[in-house]
Simulated scan of single mutants.
Amino acid sequence: MAMATMASSPIFFSKSRSCSSTSYNKRVLPQRVAAVASIPFQQPINVDYLEQEFSGHGVIFKGIGDDCVAKMSLDNGSKAILMLQSGLIASYKASMWHGGTVELLQSSVSQEANAIQGGVSVALECLTLNLGEEQVSWSPSKWGLHNIIGNPQDSIQVELISTDSHDMVQVKYIVTLQDDALISQLMVSNNSDSSSLQLSGCILSHLTVSSPDATFAVGLERSDFFGRLPILTSSAIVPPEYGQKSESQFSQLWKQLAWGPRNGHQTETERQEEEEEEGEMEEGEEHDNYKNLREQMCRIYTSAPRDFTIIDRGRRNSVVIGRDGFEELYMFSPGSSHEYYGEYAYVCIGQSAVLNPIILGPKESWTGGQRLHNPNP
C-alpha cells in the first residue's frame, strides 16, 4: 500500500456520545464509589488528604518529592503503581500460577530528566480545527486525581483528568487493575459547538523480557506495516545508539510523522526532507505468525488484529495485548545486542493514531485503550 494511499485513506476511529466504561472490563465494577474529589495540579500533593478521602479501595498513596504515586493492590496479589501527575504506570506485577507475582513492565530512572521512564505512558497531541482561525495545538501532560472506584476483592479503577485541557476539550485517563489484566483507557470529549478536534498519539507500553532474542510476537501474520524511527517521548526508553541523531532532529521528525505540519505550513526544504524520509520507509506485510524480535526493528502495523500475544521463552511468560479505538499497532524492539535482563531488555508496544489522526466533530467523543492481559494466573 503506497504512502499516498495511506495518507488519503479514510480515518478510522470509534465515536460515542457518552464516555462509557471500557469494553475490556469482564465484570461490572463494584458499586462502592468514592466521593469525586477532583484534585487540581498542585505541588506538593496532600497525601494525607488522599489517604482519608479514598481509603478502603485498595489504593495507598506515597509522596515522592513534589509528586505522588498511587499503589493499587488486589487480594490475589496483582499490583500496579501509577504516577499521579504524569499519568505514567511505573509497575505492573501480575499474579502467577505458582502463587507469586512477576513484573511485566520495564521502567528506569532518568538521571538527566530526574523522572521515571518506560512503563505505560500516554503521548497525545490535540489540535483544534477552526475554519478561518488560528489552530491551537496542545498536549495533556499533567493530570489530577478525579475518582477511584472498586475494592481489592474485585478490581480497582483510578480516574485521572487532564488539568491543562482547554475549556472546550475534556481528556480523561482511566487505569483499571483486574485480577488478570491492566487496562489503560483514554476518553476525549470535544465540547465545542462549532470546532473539530484532531487527535494524534499513542499509549506506549514497555514490556520487560529476558531479551528480545527470546521474545516472539504471535498472531501478526498478513498484517501490513510501515517502518519508522522509534517514537521519542519524555517517557520512552531508547538505547544510546539511536542518539546518533540529536534529540531535536528526532523530535522534529516525530512531529512531522505523527502530528503533521504545524498549522498546515511547511517550507520547501521541510517538504523535500519529509518526502525523502517517507521514501526511505520500509513498507511490507508480515509473513511470520511467530515473529522473533531479536533484530532491531520499529514498525507501525496498519491492519493488525485487535489481540495478539508476546511470548518470552527466557522468563517462560506471555502477555496478551488488546486494543480498542486505536487502529494502529506500534512495535519497537531495541534488538538482542544488549545485556540479558538489563536496561534494554524490553519490547515497546503501542496503540497509536499516527498515520491516521482521529477527527472529532463538535460534541463528539472518542474512547481508545489498551489491555495487558495476564493468561498465567
Rank of each mutant, 00 (worst) to 15 (best):
S336F: 02
S110V: 00
A7I: 15
P30F: 02
E134P: 14
V209A: 02
I359L: 15
W138L: 03
S38K: 13
P334I: 04
C348L: 04
L131T: 15
P230D: 08
E103T: 04
V354Y: 12
D164T: 11
L129P: 01
L207C: 01
T267V: 00
I311E: 14
S248T: 14
S8Q: 10
S200P: 01
V28S: 09
H206A: 01
S137H: 05
E343M: 12
N190M: 05
S8F: 14
M187Y: 00
L182F: 07
E339C: 13
T163W: 06
Q266I: 14
L29S: 15
S333R: 11
T163N: 04
S234Y: 04
D75S: 13
Q42S: 08
Q135V: 06
F41W: 06
Q351G: 15
S91H: 01
F61A: 00
I89E: 00
A4D: 00
S91A: 12
R313P: 00
G144V: 05
E159Y: 06
V175F: 01
E286Y: 04
M96F: 05
L127H: 10
T128L: 12
S318K: 12
Y301H: 01
P375M: 10
D75M: 03
K15D: 09
E125C: 14
Q170A: 12
M3Y: 11
G150Q: 06
S337A: 09
E274Y: 15
S200G: 03
A70I: 08
C19Q: 11
Y341I: 10
P30G: 00
S196P: 01
I11T: 10
P140V: 08
S223R: 05
S78N: 03
I237W: 03
G284E: 01
L29M: 11
Q272H: 10
F225L: 11
V218W: 09
S365I: 02
D67L: 05
A115S: 13
G132L: 08
V347T: 07
S9K: 08
S8M: 05
Q135I: 07
H146F: 10
T267C: 02
D193N: 08
P44V: 01
Q31W: 15
S248H: 12
R316H: 13
I149Q: 03
S205A: 12
R27S: 15
K79V: 09
R306S: 14
